[in-house]
């Protein structure tokens, strides 16, 4: 692995990997199928009214 090839990799793979990773995260986070689970998770740490002893 010469220095120039590594630098070329750094400049290109980095960007491709960034955009790909970002797209995957957005799709998984905002997919409608997970909406219900996420809303439930957000409330999970709050004491539900019924088990507030």
């Amino acid at each position: 692995m010469t220095h120039d090839s590594l630098v070329y990799l750094s400049k290109t793979v980095g960007l491709v990997w960034l955009v790909g990773f970002f797209v995957i995260v957005i799709l998984r986070a905002y997919s409608p199928s997970r909406r219900k689970a996420h809303d439930a998770a957000a409330r999970s740490i709050l004491p539900e009214p019924e088990d507030r002893e």
Partner: peptide, 20 residues
């Protein structure tokens, strides 16, 4: 995996610096 890419991409080439 997410946390290793940045480091590798920036640090690895420096070790072949002495070629140039």
């Amino acid at each position: 995996v997410a946390a290793s890419i940045g480091g590798l991409v920036e640090i690895a080439p420096l070790f072949t610096l002495d070629e140039t």
